Simulated scan of single mutants.
Amino acid sequence: MRIETKYFGEVAIESTSVLDFPSGIPGFNHETQFVLLDFPDNPLFQILQSTTSKETAFIVVNPYHLYEEYTLNLDESIIEILQLSSEEEVVVLSIVTLKAPFTSSTINLKAPIIINSVKNKGKQLIINTDEYPTRAPISPKHSSKVKGE
C-alpha cells in the first residue's frame, strides 16, 4: 500500500508493518494506524507516521540509546491491551521535540510509546509520577540530572 508522509512524500509500505493503536495517541485519538519509517543514514531516529494523515508524524528514538538507566514498569492493563507475552516483544520509543540548535532538542521520558513488535499493537503510556520529565535533554551529557526535573 502507498501512503503520503510528512517528511518523505509518498512511500510504499507493507500492510504487515502497520501498527494498531486502538485508542490512538493522546491528542490524536482519531489516529489509530501508524507505521515506523527509518531516517536514511540515521539509524537512531525514526518517524512514527500516521497512515491516514500526512501531517501526523512524530520523530521518535529508543530512550535507552540516550538514557541507559531509564526504567519503566508495565502494569497488567498495558500487558493485556498490547497482548504482550515476553519482554522481547516490547519496543519502547520516546517522542522527540526538535529545537535549534539540535543539542537543545528534548525527548519525552514521561510518556513513552510502547509497541508489541510481534502483534503490531501500540499505546502511549503516561507515567503518573514525577520520576521522568517530559522534556529530557536529547544529549544526556548536557544534563547532570534526569529524574525529577
Rank of each mutant, 00 (worst) to 15 (best):
E4R: 07
T5V: 11
K6L: 03
Y7V: 02
Y7C: 02
Y7R: 06
E10K: 15
A12L: 14
A12R: 13
S15C: 03
T16G: 03
S17I: 03
L19E: 00
F21N: 10
F21V: 08
S23Q: 12
P26M: 11
F28S: 00
H30C: 04
T32L: 03
Q33V: 02
D38H: 08
F39Q: 08
I47R: 01
I47F: 07
L48H: 06
I59V: 15
I59F: 09
Y64F: 15
E68T: 12
E69K: 11
Y70F: 15
Y70N: 15
T71N: 13
T71M: 12
I78E: 06
I81E: 04
Q83I: 09
L84R: 13
S85L: 10
V92P: 01
S94C: 14
T97R: 10
K99L: 11
A100E: 13
S105N: 11
S105R: 06
I107N: 00
A111G: 11
P112Y: 06
P112N: 04
I115A: 07
K119T: 11
K119A: 15
N120W: 07
N120P: 05
G122N: 02
Q124R: 07
L125Q: 06
T129I: 05
T129K: 02
E131A: 05
T134C: 10
T134G: 12
S139E: 05
S139K: 01
S144H: 05
S144T: 02
E149W: 03
